[in-house]
Design a binder for these strands. Structure first.
Length: 271
DNA sequence: CACCATGTTCCTTG
DNA sequence: CCAAGGAACATGGT
């Protein structure tokens, strides 16, 4: 369930591992994840390119490469979709069944695998243009958030999934944010009072920040072997307790007692 | 076998 | 043109 926090933790993990590494080989095993980019173009752009850094925007990983003579700056967009994973492994290790793109880095290789192939690994950075403000960015003004909510009759839970409104919130953290803000997910966006909008905004920031902190703190195992991968909720070190599930306040807790009032949590489906 | 699942994009409808 | 709803994408787990 990669949402903003999972991607953020993965980026922090990958950045120091990739920085300075040069791509020696490009293998595309499932061209669908390249989106509009042709396999040829990807190969031409990446072969011989050296990683300069990895950053995050919403749920996208942005891979940046050192500029090459006469060429425009090169950026690559990665998205995990529902089931994507990215990790480094020794060159001799077996590839996972659903490896979509493999980059040879000499002694190691970078693997993007995705069982459902909903993810992306592409030179087309157009998606970034349609993304709203980063909620954690202190420069982001909640005023625009409030204004956008005021223009919509949709339920707030649904609204939070709109990446042009706030970047990086998915199903899980949208539910969590509503709960922390003490707002029914069914409330109409344009029906919130200013104080409620402020509560929701604060809840979004708190819930995401908490998840990043947790993912950065808990002992993780990102490598291959067993279920380990780049996602910390799967990637706990062997034997580590299941912090991830335990810390969710309302998502996937249907039938369990509400943490605030004790009544059984009811499951609803929206949109 | 039926149904469900973290996300995004595209098409249709109003 | 815009907002909203819903299907599609592909695979595996329950």
């Amino acid at each position: 369930m990669p949402e903003l926090p999972e991607v953020e933790v993965l980026v922090r993990h990958l950045a120091p591992l990739l920085r300075g590494k040069t791509i020696r080989a490009v293998e595309v095993r499932r061209a669908r994840v390249l989106g509009a980019t042709s396999e040829r173009k990807l190969r031409a752009a990446l072969a011989g390119a050296t990683f300069r850094g990895v950053t995050r925007r919403a749920k996208y990983l942005v891979f940046e490469f050192k500029p090459r003579r006469g060429a425009p700056p090169l950026r690559l967009l990665g998205h995990l979709g529902m089931t994507g994973r990215m990790f480094l492994q020794p060159h001799a290790a077996p590839l996972p069944k659903h490896a979509a793109v493999v980059l040879g880095l000499g002694r190691t290789r970078f693997v993007f695998e995705d069982t459902r192939y909903f993810g992306r690994f592409t030179l087309d950075t157009g998606a970034l243009d349609r993304i709203g403000p980063e909620p954690a960015d202190f420069q982001t003004v909640p005023g625009e958030f409030a204004a956008a909510l005021g223009r919509s009759s949709q339920a707030i839970k649904v609204k939070l999934l709109d990446q042009s409104l706030v970047a990086g919130v998915g199903n899980i953290y949208a539910s969590e944010a509503c709960f922390v803000a003490r707002l029914s997910p069914k409330r109409r966006a344009d029906g919130l009072k200013p104080a409620e909008v402020a509560r929701l905004w604060a809840a979004i920031r708190a819930v995401l920040a908490e998840a990043v902190r947790l993912g950065s703190t808990v002992p993780l195992s990102f490598g291959r072997g067993g279920k380990s991968d780049g996602l910390f909720y799967y990637g706990r070190a062997a034997g580590a307790p299941d912090y991830y599930e335990e810390r969710l306040r309302v998502y996937d807790r249907a039938g369990k007692p509400c943490l605030r009032c004790g009544a059984p949590v009811k499951r609803i489906v929206q949109a």
